[in-house]
């Protein structure tokens, strides 16, 4: 304590000076709005520099947290986006509001393979977070696959890069549907089978999910038509498609939970009985 007093006494002149200087600056600011404005301007300049510096440091340490926040936000946005995309395509009459039966869960991709002909992914959430088999998995710009099996904390996903998985798709202009299958070489190159050749398609049309399965809602954009040919002798198109983003280069995914899947299943059971 004595030392503090000694130091204060030793530096009493500078302390007094800066105290009075601050006081006089506040008088100046009170007296004239011009000075007040300019003082605020300079003050803002310095404080903004300071905050920018602090922010640059803080940002780096907060990256993980911010990432998490962004993912949470994306989860919400993704849901809104999906419901918005599908509503205009359903063409409802009488301004009925359409139910959107999908919920979105975010997940990190732990393992992603693309070298085999039948690839699987591992996600870091499982049955404890409400993941069940046969849920659709999408990424920020396209689809990833369908959940195959789940454990308590992890889930196994059949990748879209798997020649056994066929996904119901259509173009954004024409409701004719086909199934999207991986051609097995480049992770971006896909084939669309079973589109009858009497519908009008064009190169460059956007391919969206068809909404005929319980995995994906209608209207998730997947890719573009890159090559279009009418096969001779059969009534089908041969369509090559390119994906918007590479399924081998994604690190986050969103799992779509179809709230009506039980209902749909029971309905299908009734039909098969």
């Amino acid at each position: 304590m004595q030392r503090i007093f000694n130091a204060l006494l030793q530096f009493r002149n500078p302390i007094l000076y800066f105290f009075l200087l601050g006081l006089s600056f506040s008088f100046t600011a009170k007296q004239s709005t011009f000075h007040e404005f300019n003082l605020q301007k300079y003050g803002f300049y310095f404080s903004s520099r300071l905050y920018a510096f602090k922010d640059a440091i803080g940002n780096y340490y907060n990256l993980k947290e911010i990432n998490q926040q962004l993912l949470n936000e994306n989860e919400q946005l993704k849901k809104n986006d999906l419901s918005l995309r599908s509503i205009p395509l359903y063409r409802l009459t009488n301004n009925q509001s359409k139910r959107f039966p999908f919920k979105v869960k975010k997940a990190n991709i732990l393992k992603n393979s693309y070298k085999n002909q039948r690839n699987f992914l591992v996600l870091d959430i499982g049955s404890e977070n409400g993941v069940h088999p046969e849920m659709g998995v999408i990424s920020n710009n396209g689809i990833v696959g369908v959940v195959h099996s789940v454990t308590k904390n992890y889930s196994n996903v059949i990748s879209i890069l798997n020649q056994d998985l066929k996904i119901n798709v259509r173009t954004n202009k024409n409701p004719a549907f086909g199934s999207l299958v991986w051609s097995g070489k480049n992770p971006l190159e896909f084939k669309i089978e079973d589109i009858v050749s009497n519908v009008s398609l064009a190169k460059g049309d956007t391919i969206i999910t068809g909404g005929m399965s319980s995995y994906f809602p209608l209207g998730i954009p997947i890719g573009k038509i890159s090559k279009l040919e009418k096969m001779k002798g059969s009534g089908y198109y041969s369509v090559d498609a390119t994906l918007f983003n590479d399924p081998s280069q994604i690190y986050y995914a969103y799992i779509l939970e179809n709230l009506d899947s039980q209902e749909l299943k029971s309905l299908q059971k009734k039909i098969s009985q």
Binding site: N13, L16, Y17, L20, L21, L23, S24, F25, F27, T28, Q31, S32, H35
Partner: peptide
């Protein structure tokens, strides 16, 4: 220091200028 502040302050006060005399005289 105290006197120089007072001097500048009085002059500012009486001549209704801003705080310029105070700050300059104090410094």
């Amino acid at each position: 220091i105290l006197l120089s502040f007072l001097l500048g302050f009085l002059i500012d006060f009486l001549s209704q200028s801003g705080g310029a005399h105070t700050i300059a005289s104090l410094t």
